[in-house]
Design a binder for these strands. Structure first.
Lengths: 131, 131
DNA sequence: AATCTTATTGACAATCATTATCAACAAGAC
DNA sequence: GTCTTGTTGATAATGATTGTCAATAAGATT
């Protein structure tokens, strides 16, 4: 096999910045953060790097309720999230029970090649008070 | 209380067309269907009508994996969906077990005012074969 | 270290869904 | 019928994401 991937400071920068972020962030946000720190990275590159990370399983992606793609660094294990809609605080939740349930339901109806979207949005303790 | 809403043939058309549709449809799709049937309804109006229906609880909305907003006529009961990513076929699924689980998890972490996104995408029996 | 190949970058244009604007229109009250 | 004002629809505006492509640079090869 050939040399398919090259290491660039841009990819590292995105990966690192994603790791620094608390909750889920959009590509746009991440780009602005990087620029604010003096980086000259391009927006398209951030999108590409995030997409690659997500494909490689080093990042998790989901759609925010208003349609933006959000990313977050994560380990390899599949899991789901409890997300504060106000401050972006994210709690990883174990969803093995729901996983099993989803697969079961899908099989039951003859569906294959399934993916699921299971996320809970709410207001965390802190943000509940400040309303 | 004052007269806040007016009945127009446009709203009826959207509601009716949504009812006719099998699975989830985008506003764009619905607009094209309506135009194809000879209606002169405007795209913006379809968006507004769908948004209103969703607010009123007469329609259910969700984000497709590629970021589009999809709508579907539905009763008032809260439920979730198993959706064919190829043909849009939709199966309503009873998710009471998952509902309970979601609430429990949220409470456990001090989250309030929660909403959740629980949807399963896959290939239905028919579309699995035609690949 | 010099060179070569080609994956990658970044500025910018192109898409695409959705929302905002606003003058013209029409539903329903009087 | 008239009047008020919610509603419509053509169009522009927005905003996120993706495509384009010449210039750049990573890493293999010499």
């Amino acid at each position: 096999m050939s040399v398919a991937k090259r290491n660039t400071w841009q990819k590292d920068a995105v990966k690192h910045a994603l790791g620094e972020s608390k909750g889920f962030v959009s590509a746009q946000d991440l780009h602005q953060v990087l620029r604010a720190h003096g980086s000259t990275i391009g927006l398209a590159t951030v999108y590409r790097a995030l997409s690659d990370l997500a494909n490689a399983g080093d990042a998790d992606s989901l759609q925010s309720p208003d349609g933006q793609l959000l990313y977050r660094a994560c380990g390899t294990s599949h899991h789901h999230h409890l997300i504060c809609r106000e401050c972006g605080l994210t709690v990883e939740i174990d969803a093995s029970r729901v996983e099993a349930w989803a697969d079961e339901i899908a099989k039951e109806h003859g569906f294959g090649d399934t993916t699921h979207t299971i996320d809970i949005f709410g207001l965390c303790r802190g943000c509940k008070g400040s309303k």
